[in-house]
């Protein structure tokens, strides 16, 4: 039951769910939810390989750094979203088509 294939399948499912969310949504926050799913799938893969195909735990540290980077990404991303909303009064991604103002 608890084996590498099942973990890889779960990670795969999270990854394609994240891709689907990122492609299908047009709301910036919803797209960021997809990014979180993809980062989680990557971290899960690292942890799974550490358990089943490796004898040190460096993979755990990689997962930990992925979690840290996800937190930083969410903070800065959401700050940008809020600033964008203050300027444009929308968070539709098609409105983010100008390089200035």
């Amino acid at each position: 039951m608890i084996s590498l294939p099942s973990y890889l399948f779960l990670s795969f499912a999270l990854f394609i769910a994240g891709i689907a969310v990122m492609v299908a949504r047009k709301n910036i926050i919803a797209i960021m939810l997809g990014i979180e799913l993809i980062l989680n799938s990557a971290a899960l893969n690292f942890a799974a390989y550490t358990r089943f195909a490796n004898d040190n735990i460096d993979g755990h540290l990689m997962s930990l750094f992925i979690i840290v980077i996800a937190a930083a990404e969410a903070a800065v991303g959401l700050a940008i979203v809020i600033r964008f909303f203050q300027i444009k009064e929308t968070i539709h991604i098609d409105d983010a088509a100008q390089l200035q103002n």
Binding site: I2, Y7, I29, M32, L33, E36, A43, A47, A48, T50, R51, F52, H60, S63, L64, I67, V68, A70, A71, A74, A75, L78
Partner: peptide
Amino acid sequence: CIGADFLAASQLVIYAGGVVILM
């Protein structure tokens, strides 16, 4: 389940406590 206890706890603290509330 795969013995990554510290990772599980960090996941709870950072995601449930931080990222989701930020979202």
